[in-house]
């Protein structure tokens, strides 16, 4: 049975040009996802009116919801195009680039700010040298389990997109890097830089800018316990702030 899929896509030729909306009608096949739908446009770049147009550009990589590259706004919500199955979406399917990042072209955005923020909060574990330092410290299974859940973050940007306090007016770093501070601080070697990370979270645009709308935990495709990490670090930064004031 031949069925058609209607796509309404917000497009933009380059970072400086104006955006516009273009509609496409593509043939349906069972179990197709949004990436497959975009590939159909690439094969035959005709819009709904039948005019030849440029194929829609998008980013994707792993195709199994692990890399985060194909994150876009699908029917109003941020999610990965690879795990968005056409059968489960209401039509016409509206596609748009993420709104919290600069658009490169069509559905491709530059998520550099997320990596800058990871750098800002020192989301890594420092090892001073490449020489043999013996076995690392032991980590309890409880901490390992918690760390695993936090380590699933793929920097896709869904939490940034859904957060009302992440926008061009504010400097808020967003939920993702805060959870990574929780991850790095939970590791015994990472904990050596614990206070430096807490201090980074206490700068402008840091953890205090969270307004507890808690959209992040709802939209996170990897079920990273973002709001728990934020609350834990609210406690840690509060104690750290009081302690350092009395030690001044």
């Amino acid at each position: 049975m031949a069925k058609d899929i209607r796509l309404v896509i917000k497009r933009q030729a380059n970072p400086k040009s104006a955006d516009y909306v273009e509609e496409f009608v593509i043939p349906y096949f069972p179990k197709m996802n949004v990436v497959a739908a975009l590939m159909e446009i690439q094969k035959n770049p005709l819009n709904a009116k039948g005019d030849v147009t440029t194929p829609v550009a998008w980013d994707c990589n792993c195709l199994e919801e692990v890399c985060g590259a194909c994150t876009m706004v699908i029917n109003g919500q941020a999610r990965q195009a690879c795990s968005a199955l056409v059968d489960q979406l209401t039509q016409p399917i509206h596609l748009a680039p993420l709104t919290k990042f600069p658009v490169v072209r069509d559905l491709v955005v530059d998520r550099k700010v997320m990596f800058d923020n990871l750098r800002k909060v020192k989301a890594w574990i420092e090892v001073d040298g490449t020489h043999d330092m013996g076995p690392g410290p032991r980590v309890s299974p409880k901490v390992q389990e918690q760390a695993y859940r936090l380590s699933k973050c793929m920097t896709c940007g869904c939490c940034m997109e859904a957060c009302p306090n992440v926008n061009p007016k504010s400097n808020f770093i967003g939920p993702a890097p805060i959870a990574q501070v929780d991850l790095m601080n939970s590791h015994p070697t990472g904990a050596l830089q614990r206070e430096r990370r807490l201090e980074a979270l206490m700068t402008e645009g840091g953890i205090a800018d969270c307004g507890n709308a808690q959209n992040c935990i709802k939209v996170c495709p990897k079920e990273v316990p973002l709001t728990r990490s934020i609350a834990r670090l609210n406690r840690a930064t509060t104690f750290h702030g009081i302690k350092s004031w009395f030690n001044k």
């Binding site: 859904a162 009302p164 926008n167 007016k169 504010s170 507890n212 709308a213 808690q214 959209n215």
Partner: peptide, 17 residues
């Protein structure tokens, strides 16, 4: 500093926010 988005993210906490 807020850009509200309840039209797309209709969660209970977002409404309260």
């Amino acid at each position: 500093l807020t850009r509200n988005n309840i039209e797309n993210y209709r969660y209970f906490r977002n409404w309260l926010f």
